[in-house]
Design a protein around this nucleic acid. Structure first.
Length: 256
DNA sequence: ATGGCGCATGGAATGCGA
């Protein structure tokens, strides 16, 4: 079973790439972030024609998240319960017994800014909510664009000591791990300077001037089933790419 | 990184992302 996440930076622009990628990679679940479109504009017909179902929480211009899956999604939750937020950043659903949480974490803009405070409040609310989710759903995966590079090795050595790598953000990431979650990518040997995002400017992708900010955290029962976790750089090499690459985790069947 | 691009909105110039 394959679970994946991809910040597409406009589903309208990236739809052909998403359809091609589904056919090539055949994930069972794909979490999407930054749809940048309203629910009424969600390209459901094209996704169903590709053999997938979808649940989504869209928004004009900014944000917007979706979960695509081969099998039906139940217990759908939009947003963080108890955290009133007009920004559409979270959708959760249960698919084949696994609680899938798809999240587009706030950027934060600059350490100390108003948006940075929002990022930390949002992170605290997410963590609080997930504590209960992990307890009620032993098999849980949190997939998305975290906008946090958890360790120094997750940022290019020349990346400034600012947003995405600050102590409060990294502490918040550790608080998610403390729920009993595990970074699937780090369960395996990986190349040095493995990143999932590269700025469009400055030939950043060619120079590999990037950050690893797209993650898949898994609960202990799922961690034991992880066979691999990879960042797929192929879509970043296409014409008009998203600035993010997809991340894929492969699970072996339960009880094997 | 000083900025550099890409996307959305709206129909030019600006805000935002990371």
């Amino acid at each position: 079973m394959k679970l994946a996440t991809w910040n597409v930076n406009s589903l309208k622009v990236r739809l052909p790439q998403v359809i091609d990628w589904l056919a090539a990679v055949q994930p069972d679940v794909l979490c999407l972030q930054e749809l940048k479109l309203e629910d009424a504009s969600f390209p459901l017909a094209a996704i169903e024609a590709a053999g997938y179902r979808a649940v989504f929480s869209g928004q004009k211009t900014y944000n917007g998240v979706a979960i695509l899956s081969r099998t039906p999604a139940g217990e759908v939750v939009r947003g963080i319960p108890g955290f009133d937020d007009p920004q559409k950043r979270v959708i959760a659903a249960t698919i084949d017994g696994i609680r899938i949480v798809c999240a587009y974490f706030p950027n934060g803009q600059a350490v100390g800014s108003e948006k940075f405070s929002y990022k930390l409040e949002w992170l605290a609310a997410l963590t609080r909510w997930l504590q209960g989710e992990v307890a009620s759903h032993p098999e849980l995966a949190l997939l998305g664009d975290y906008n946090i590079a958890p360790e120094d090795r997750d940022a290019h050595p020349d990346w400034p000591d600012e947003i995405h790598v600050s102590a409060p953000e990294r502490n918040a990431f550790q608080a998610l791990l403390a729920l009993g979650l595990s970074d699937a990518f780090r369960r395996f040997e990986q190349a040095e300077k493995s990143y999932s995002w590269w700025d469009y400017r400055m030939m950043a992708f060619r120079r590999n001037f990037g950050l690893r900010i797209d993650h898949i955290l898994v609960s202990t029962p799922l961690a034991q089933r992880c066979r691999s976790c990879v960042i797929d750089k192929a879509p970043r090499k296409l014409e008009r790419p998203s600035d993010h690459a997809p991340v894929i985790v492969e699970l072996v069947p339960a009880g094997t």
